[in-house]
């Protein structure tokens, strides 16, 4: 079964770029857009780090340009792609094709401007003017794969972020409370649990897309 592993969906999309016309290079221009996306915590600007962090339930996403197929040397056939492609790969929390449809529509609703900036040199993307059209466009360009990212489970993103937050906080707690008497330890632990709220996935927790303490969501 391609694409799905439990509730994790490995999405692979190859969107052809328009051909060069005149002096404009769709590849160079698209690279400029990708290069300008914030990619470090330092570029945190009030909104989420990467635009994809603002798309709910995105475990990991990556954009890159595929210019050509590699040639393995004689006697293989030398072949070239007919165009360059914008490759969008993402692993998301979507346990079915229907859930992916929802994901894509939500993605368009969340970051329409970023999407149009990133995809602006893709063939026919100017005809994408709605979440429905975006979902259809992506589906046309989708390649069925079993490409998943390691390092995440298939739980909803909020649960994964909360888990990571708890793990980080709990290890700190362990380091700073070694050797306490059981009563003192229990008291401290209760205070700790009260602070980190293990059953509240909304807060405190990590923000999507970043892992710095500065950006922890507090209650």
């Amino acid at each position: 079964m391609p694409n799905l592993s439990g509730n994790a969906y490995g999405l692979t999309v190859l969107c052809p770029l328009v051909a060069e016309s005149g002096l404009v290079s769709p590849s160079i221009e698209t690279r400029k857009v990708l290069q300008a996306l914030p990619d470090t915590q330092d570029s945190f600007d009030g909104r989420c780090n990467s635009p994809m962090a603002a798309v709910p339930n995105t475990y990991l996403a990556r954009f890159f340009l595929l210019e050509d197929a590699f040639f393995q040397g004689y006697p293989n056939q030398y072949d070239q792609l007919r165009s360059s492609y914008l490759v969008f790969v993402a692993e998301v929390h979507a346990g079915s094709e229907a859930a992916l449809t929802d994901y894509l529509k939500t993605m368009y609703a969340a970051i329409p401007d970023d999407i149009h900036r990133i995809w602006q040199y893709c063939i026919d993307f100017d005809q994408v003017t709605s979440a429905d059209a975006f979902e259809k466009y992506i589906r046309r360009c989708q390649v069925n794969t079993t490409f998943y990212f390691n390092g995440s489970t298939d739980a909803p993103l909020a649960e994964q972020l909360k888990s990571l937050y708890l793990k980080q906080e709990f290890s700190r707690f362990v380091y700073s409370h070694q050797g306490l008497k059981p009563e003192a330890l229990l008291t401290a632990y209760r205070a700790f649990a009260e602070r980190v709220k293990p059953f509240d996935v909304q807060a405190p927790t990590w923000k999507p897309g970043i892992s710095s303490e500065k950006h922890i969501v507090t209650a």
Binding site: E20, S25, S27, D79, Q80, L81, R82, S84
Partner: peptide, 10 residues
């Protein structure tokens, strides 16, 4: 075979 070149990149 015909080779496709990205003239804007060369």
């Amino acid at each position: 075979m015909e080779v496709r070149l990205n003239y804007t990149d060369i």
